[in-house]
Every structure is written in structure tokens, then in C-alpha cells.
């Protein structure tokens, strides 16, 4: 049994059916006791200051701390920084498998199926075995859907929603315990009174490097009822075909697919405004233009760079945004 790390969400059942432990390197980095120190270590090794902090965190976790035995690097469907990261992992002596989501392929399902088969082969399993493993993980995914519903109905906080959905990329390394933990959260939340704060916000974009943003937002007269990418990480598609689920997964593909998903959730969850989190130096910052153009509600773009506390500049923006939404609602 090996610890198999990955740079972003991959079809995790492939790792699980091969009998290995899945480890999302992002979660190890940001949930560690001192993520900033990991970034500083990357700087010491010469990684540039003006490059995404997530990449630097992943570098230290993978190449320096050697937290995992092997790494699956997603070379297409995330950012091209991963290409350089793959080279640095290789240089550090970590075996790296690349995995590529299709980009503008004429037959995306076929291309993705080939990638999944190749990955399964490298890890010593088959796509069929991975697909059959869904019987176990679907139980968790169903619970996560329930937790997500309780979020927009008012019992689960935006932070809890973020935490459990984002952790579902690797089920915290233990799918059995994860199922039990999510069950407990749902049981406790079901007993709570519904939160009826008037402003309903959606959070979109990559998960924040500053999770304190949730506490700040929810200390105001508002509630986060949707976490876009975290929800996608939980693979909400119920397609009977295992490969198709990862075609319907929006994160690794074009922004228009994401926008359609977000717009649907805005309607479903009666969202008043969107907070679009972008990571400094990330290509997704560019997509903000299309997001603002096509979403039917106001969008506030927040930029995060280093982990740590929420800074005054960001607080001032969020405060103003919420106040604007409140007065629009009263209008």
C-alpha cells in the first residue's frame, strides 16, 4: 500500500481500487500547521515570488517533505505550472505519473477513457475495477450531496461545506472513516435551527488559501450557500458511466461549462451575489472577465496570495459588497 499524492482532483477510485492511499497534496499543504513556512522553503529553493502559492506549497510537500511515495501530476486540466512542478518532483526522485484531462479533443470521452486506463495500469489496477469501486464511494458522494443541500437549506455553514467537499478529493486518505465523519456532521447539523440570514452568497473559483474568509463572511448578515469548485471536487455527476462523470466534472475544462453550472446553482439556491476568489498569478484570473459578463448576479473578485489571516483590504471589499447586496434587496 503506497501513498499516492496528486496535484489536483483525479478519478480517486483508480487509486483506491489499486489498494493505495490517496493524498491530495493541496490539502496536506493548506491544512498543515504552517503553510507559509512551506512556501518560504520553496522560495529558498529558488521558486519565484510571483508564482502561485499553491504550486510552491505542493512543491515543498512533494519534493522536500516527501509526504507521498508517488505523485499523479495533472498536466492538462489544471495549470501549466504543474509541468514545471513535475520536473522538480522528478528531480527530487519522486516517481511521477502524468494524467491529462482532454482539452478541445474531438472525442473527449475516448481521450479521457484512455488516460484513465493508462493511470489504472500504472497503479496496478483496471478501469473496470475503479468503476466498480464507485459502489463504495457513491455512498459517500450521496452523503456529500445531502450535506450540500443542508448548506443551502441553512443547517450547514459555508465553511463546513467547503471543508467536507474539498476533502472529498482524497476522502482524507480513509474512505471508511470519511463516510462516518460526514454522517456525524449531517446528524449534528440536522438538529440545528436553520440559518435564515438574508444575503445568500455563492463562492466560486479555486478553494481559498485563506479559509478564514468563510468566518468573516458568515459573521455578517449573510451565508455562503454554494462552493463551486469544492462541490465539483465531490464529483456530483450521477452518470452511470464512470468516465462520463469526469467529463461532466467542470473544473478541468473551459470556463463556459463552469459558468453554466454556476448559473444553474444561482437559480437553484436563490443566490444574491457571487464572490469569485482568484489566486494571485493564476490563469483563472483572466476568466474573471467572462464570469462577470455572463453571471446574472453581482460578482466581487477577491485575490489571495499567501496563506494567513484575512487582510484589511479584502475585508473592506467584502463589507462593501454585502452592504451593496443588502441595499439592492431592500430596494
Amino acid at each position: 500500500m503506497k501513498k499516492i499524492g496528486f496535484t489536483t482532483t483525479i478519478p480517486v477510485e483508480i487509486v483506491l481500487s489499486a489498494g493505495h492511499v490517496p493524498v491530495d497534496l493541496n490539502n496536506i499543504f493548506v491544512a498543515g500547521s504552517d503553510p507559509s513556512a512551506l512556501i518560504e522553503e520553496a522560495h529558498t529553493d529558488g521558486l519565484p515570488r510571483n508564482c502561485c502559492s499553491w504550486i510552491k506549497g505542493l512543491y515543498t510537500v512533494g519534493a522536500k517533505l516527501k509526504a507521498v511515495d508517488e505523485i499523479i501530476a495533472v498536466s492538462n486540466g489544471d495549470c501549466s505550472n504543474t509541468h514545471a512542478l513535475t520536473e522538480l518532483f522528478g528531480e527530487a526522485g519522486i516517481p511521477v505519473h502524468t494524467f491529462s484531462y482532454p482539452y478541445n479533443e474531438p472525442y473527449p470521452s475516448k481521450a479521457l477513457k484512455t488516460q484513465m486506463e493508462l493511470l489504472a495500469g500504472k497503479l496496478g489496477t483496471t478501469l473496470k475495477a475503479a468503476s466498480q469501486y464507485c459502489e463504495k464511494t457513491d455512498k459517500i458522494r450521496d452523503k456529500l450531496k445531502m450535506l450540500d443541500r443542508l448548506t443551502y437549506e441553512g443547517e450547514v455553514s459555508g465553511f463546513e461545506n467547503h471543508l467536507w467537499l474539498v476533502s472529498s478529493s482524497d476522502f482524507n486518505g480513509d474512505a471508511g472513516k470519511f463516510l462516518k465523519d460526514v454522517d456525524d456532521v449531517i446528524a449534528k447539523a440536522s438538529l440545528r435551527e436553520k440559518n435564515d440570514k438574508s444575503i445568500r452568497l455563492g463562492y466560486i473559483g479555486v478553494p481559498p488559501i485563506i479559509p478564514a474568509i468563510y468566518d468573516f463572511i458568515e459573521s455578517k448578515n449573510c451565508k455562503v450557500v454554494f462552493n463551486e469548485v469544492q462541490r465539483q471536487f465531490s464529483i456530483p455527476s450521477e452518470n452511470a458511466d464512470y468516465v462520463e462523470r469526469y467529463i461532466e466534472y467542470t473544473y478541468p475544462y473551459g470556463v463556459m461549462g463552469r459558468i453554466n453550472d454556476i448559473a444553474e446553482r444561482i437559480r437553484e439556491r436563490r443566490i444574491d451575489g457571487i464572490i469569485h476568489y482568484v489566486q494571485s498569478f493564476c490563469f483563472r484570473q483572466i476568466q474573471d472577465t467572462l464570469i462577470k459578463k455572463y453571471l446574472p448576479v453581482p460578482v466581487l473578485t477577491i485575490e489571495g496570495d499567501m496563506p494567513g489571516n484575512l487582510d484589511g483590504r479584502t475585508k473592506i471589499r467584502i463589507d462593501s459588497f454585502i452592504e451593496m447586496l443588502e441595499s439592492k434587496k431592500k430596494k
Partner: peptide, 22 residues
Amino acid sequence: GQDSKVIWARDGYIEDFVMNDK
């Protein structure tokens, strides 16, 4: 001093605003 902002007012209400990036 350290922030610039552009506010769009319509019909006497704030319709939207945007602030400088980092």
C-alpha cells in the same frame, strides 16, 4: 491612499463597484 474604486450608481442606488487589484 492605497485603494482605488469605481462605483456605479443607478437610480440613486449602488448598482456595482470594482476596486483595484493587489
